[in-house]
Design a protein around this nucleic acid. Structure first.
Length: 574
RNA sequence: UCGGGUGUCGUCCAAUGGUAGGACACCAGUCUCUGGAACUGGCUAUCUAGGUUCGAAUCCUGGCACCCGAGCCA
């Protein structure tokens, strides 16, 4: 990680506090002294996959709220109740991502599996109170008995077993006497409840599987619903912030807390993040990885934190984004353009400028001596003079961008064309005096002359030039591979697949374009993976870890705003 | 069909009975050695029908639309 990554999220004293309905509720609770002046949140991921930008919203909320309140704390807790799906590898990746985003959970790293003993005791307590029973129905039968949203369910024939029998059966479930799926422990609530979650939910299932933390200590595992609320209670969380789909579960969590007579956090639900032109569910992201549509979880097109990091996103940009999208209960679809805006805003301030040519076109300066080379001074960041200057070499043969030349330019094109004079940034004014083509009529090379009086880029006679081009001296250019990315999906809302459509049907076939060779200015020789630059006039780019000794690879993080591209697009539409 | 939730510019979020505002996007312009950045201006919204009120996005009533819910997933 470079120092851009090491920077932590600013603390409350230096930030303006965001305002939203959750922070309003918390402020109100504080005023009423509901939790003895405490604010204690938690970020509770399941270690069954990688974190994505939607998780970042939750991380920024939970850690943010804690940081904004004096003495506020936020725990990191892994909801690891399903050993079949969870792995230690994910735990490590999640911790790294949260840290990278700039947040710190101190020594408060917890696991639902830490509470398996307590949860077991809680279950026994419910049995003793006649509020839970062991059910021998099969999974299919349980589903049948549950009823539907419009019809009530039916009681299981095992619902009225004695406390003694339940205690004995549950103990034997734990001791491994029964095979997977043979019996479950259920809460005894109300099979006619209009809330399906209250129709005798399953509390424990038999699972003869090793857990990544508890090993073979258990062969029964609590369901998420039986673990989550109680874990929050055990940790004395004041505000359990979660997404909307758990709103229907809140009455169940409250039922457990009341039946068990234990500490009662306040749960508040908010809408999860949806981003245009991508998908967010782990299931769909996994499908992209498995289907080979992307190179992995950290493919720079993925909305995962590891993907965004590799793409060149900064933690600060992601945090700013999470703040700007706000927080509410209605479903929404945030425009990817906002995420990109936040990245540009951050990188504009901090990324050093360099010159790189992505689509090289050879230029020979006819009146420039063959063997001459000079060194010109270039500004590293016009937004920040403190970043200093550097030297770039200039010589007779150069590369410019193919798109910066047109033989027969339309009105609004004011870059290079035959007979036209432009400026090479920080170098000289040049005029195109000839065009060399191959047999197919393709432009292979430009012949130009330069005006020695314009050294550095200013004309002593004050004449203006309409355009400034970036360039690279051919003799000193570093060849590179550059990967351009576009939206993963060509449709803004992939969830909009009513007619049985699959999000994979709208995969953007041009989401990745590999350019090679591209030519970069020599100051980039030592660029290390993760380093971010602005290639002038093109966008922000980041060195990819695929780079090797003989081949540097850059990812385009985001383009610069491109007015000319817009003009062109408008032109082709007409 | 039952229960829970949600409806404000193209998009996201505000306005907590008193001038519907900000950001992104878009359009136009200023400036510019990045067609970048910055700056200026413009554009467009309260789901609907009634009611209460001097006054309603906000309160009441009735519709409508969308989201979540029938895992031994989380």
């Amino acid at each position: 990680m470079n120092d851009q990554e090491k920077e932590k999220a600013p603390d409350a004293s230096t930030t303006t506090r965001p305002s939203d309905f959750i922070r309003d509720i918390i402020a109100h609770d504080l005023k009423e002294d509901k939790y003895g002046g405490r604010v204690h949140t938690r970020f509770p991921p399941e270690p069954n996959g990688y974190l994505h930008i939607g998780h970042a919203k939750s991380i920024c909320l939970n850690f943010g709220v804690a940081a904004e309140n004096p003495g506020g704390l936020c725990n990191l807790r892994f909801d690891d109740t399903n050993p079949i799906k969870e792995e230690a590898e994910y735990v490590a990746a999640i911790k790294a991502d949260v840290r990278w985003l700039g947040f710190d959970w101190g020594d408060r790293e917890y696991y639902a599996s830490d509470y398996f003993g307590t949860l077991y005791e809680y279950a026994v307590k419910l049995i003793r109170r006649k509020l839970a029973y062991v059910d021998d129905l099969t999974a299919d039968e349980i589903r049948e008995y549950r009823g539907t949203p419009t019809e009530p369910g039916r009681n299981s024939p095992y619902r009225n077993r004695s406390v003694e029998e339940n205690l004995d059966l549950f103990r034997r479930m734990r001791e491994g006497e029964f095979p997977d799926g043979s019996r479950v422990l259920r809460a005894r609530i109300d099979m006619a409840s209009p809330n399906l979650n209250l129709r005798d939910p399953v509390l424990y299932r038999v699972l003869h599987a090793a857990h990544h933390r508890t090993g073979d200590a258990w062969c029964i595992y609590p369901m998420y619903d039986f673990a989550h609320g109680q874990s929050d209670s055990i940790e004395e969380i004041t505000h359990s912030l979660c997404t909307l789909e758990f709103e229907n579960h809140r009455p169940l969590y409250n039922w457990f807390l009341d039946a068990l007579e234990i500490y009662h956090p306040r749960q508040i639900e908010f809408a999860r993040l949806n981003l245009s032109h991508t998908v967010m569910s782990k299931r769909k992201l996994l499908a992209l990885v498995r289907g080979g549509h992307v190179s992995g979880w950290d493919d720079p097109r993925m909305p995962t934190l590891s993907g965004l990091r590799r793409r060149g996103y900064t933690p600060a940009a992601i945090r700013a984004f999470c703040e700007r999208i706000g927080l509410a209960k209605r479903d929404s679809l945030v425009d990817m353009a906002l995420l990109e805006h936040c990245l540009r805003e951050d990188l504009n301030r901090r990324a050093p400028r360099v010159m790189g040519v992505l689509g090289p076109l050879r230029v020979v300066i006819e009146n420039y001596p063959e063997d001459k080379e000079e060194s010109l001074e270039a500004i590293n960041n016009p937004e920040d003079p403190g970043m200093g200057t550097r030297q770039v070499p200039f010589s007779r043969v150069l590369f410019i961008e193919r798109d910066d030349f047109m033989e027969d330019p339309p009105k609004k094109f004011y870059r290079l064309a035959p007979g036209r004079e432009v400026r090479l940034r920080y170098a000289y004014f040049i005029t195109c005096v000839g065009v060399v083509k191959n047999d197919a009529g393709e432009v292979m090379e430009l012949r130009c002359t330069y005006d020695p009086a314009t050294r550095g880029g200013d004309a002593p006679d004050g004449r203006k030039v309409k355009s400034t081009l970036h360039w690279v001296a051919a003799s000193r250019a570093i060849p590179a591979e550059v990967r351009l990315y576009d939206h993963l999906l060509s449709k803004d809302d992939p969830a909009d697949d009513k007619n049985g459509g699959d999000f994979k049907d709208v995969l953007n076939p041009r989401s990745l374009e590999i350019l090679k060779p591209c030519y970069l200015e020599p100051s980039l020789v030592d660029a290390s993976p993760g380093s971010r630059y602005q290639f002038e006039r093109l966008g922000y780019f980041c060195v990819d870890p695929d780079s090797s000794e003989d081949q540097v690879v850059f990812n385009r993080s985001v383009t610069l705003r491109d007015t000319w591209a817009k003009i062109q697009k408008a032109g082709t539409k007409k």
